[in-house]
Design a protein around this nucleic acid. Structure first.
Lengths: 191, 191
DNA sequence: TCAGGTACTGACCGATCGGTCATCTAGCGT
DNA sequence: ACGCTAGATGACCGATCGGTCAGTACCTGA
């Protein structure tokens, strides 16, 4: 493991737990046993360090959204599965984006992540009709992402097997997004 | 509206949208058309200003959790309804706690909110058996809270009637937390 | 042996932060 | 006319921030 990689890993952990603004370059340097100047040697600025950490996940999500047919894609098992896999793959970065994306949209890479969340919300609007439907999407995807972030933060993720987690999340999403015929009929009658 | 109340309202809006750390007392003062020193006259410190804003919601949630019978309370329609009402009542503060509680637990009042979230997670553990069940609670409550926060942040909350929102959220929670007999049987067979 | 690039560092910079304090003003009871 | 108090403010403080820069140690190919 090079110092470069060390710094990125340490910064990710600190950004996720203590927050980007509250994590100083000095602290990252101390934890890595090096100097602040050397951190700025490897990463030209604090913002670029953040970008280096966050970009891969954002790029991934971007690609996933590009591959969607807005009209019907959101319900497809393929998309749901890909979405869950993406969240699990970038498990450490998700809390960072979820919890601090709002705060940091003056930082370019985080602004991008906000735009992508807006794009997801727009997909909900296109793929669904009623308020009820939109909320169902919001609660489903938001709930899964946020639960993952909270579990990571509260230190509960170590206890759970990743494969169990994956199948359970898929099941819940399936229940929420493919409601029974009776529910649909009832829902339509209320709008 | 007194200056005191003005300051609290402005600070809440700025904390929620730009983040606590990124919002300086100087900026709050500028937006209120007064001086930084006068902000510190009304609120002894920045932390106490945050506490003044957040405490009511945290106290509310604390009281709600005190009134719960851990074994069966989480499914009761009463609790679900009270929880949703609480979120809606403190709609402006929820994004602040959801998005920045992680970052600010060195601030006493936010540490309290983290502890309360941990208490909610503990309730999940007591009230449910399998991993599947715990996740169901997590996705349900986390999803509702986070969706509300995201809607507030992305500026989508203005379009939706509060009563509609309330009944839709209650419906989704009910679906998730009171699964059909078939689902339960299937779930048990997998654990 | 020496030139050149890479990794790294201590000293330093300007800016900004939260917070203190002496001071000023305006209203009000006496 | 007086003193008291609440509200408000400009000047200032120490600390910390992200970032710059000149210089050092080390390795490597010519």
């Amino acid at each position: 493991m090079t110092l470069h990689d060390d710094l990125r890993a340490i910064a990710l952990a600190e950004f996720a737990t203590s927050g980007y603004a509250a994590t100083s370059l000095q602290r990252i340097a101390d934890l890595a046993g090096t100097s602040k100047a050397s951190v700025l040697y490897h990463f030209a600025s604090k913002e670029l360090l953040l970008a280096d950490i966050v970009s891969p996940a954002v790029d991934d999500l971007d690609r996933l959204l590009d591959s969607i047919d807005p009209a019907s894609g959101l319900r497809h098992a393929d998309f749901v599965e890909n979405f869950v896999d993406l969240l699990l793959r970038h498990r450490q970065v998700v809390p960072l984006i979820i919890n601090q994306g709002a705060t940091l949209d003056d930082v370019p890479v985080m602004h991008r992540s906000t735009e992508i969340m807006r794009r997801v919300a727009e997909l909900f609007r296109l793929a669904s009709g009623s308020t009820m439907e939109k909320l169902r999407f919001g609660v489903a995807f938001g709930g899964v992402a946020y639960t993952l972030a909270a579990a990571e933060r509260l230190g509960l993720s170590g206890e759970i097997d990743v494969d169990d987690l994956r199948s359970a999340l898929l099941r819940i999403l399936h229940e929420l997004l493919v409601p029974s015929a009776a529910d649909l009929a009832d829902s339509n009658s209320k709008d």
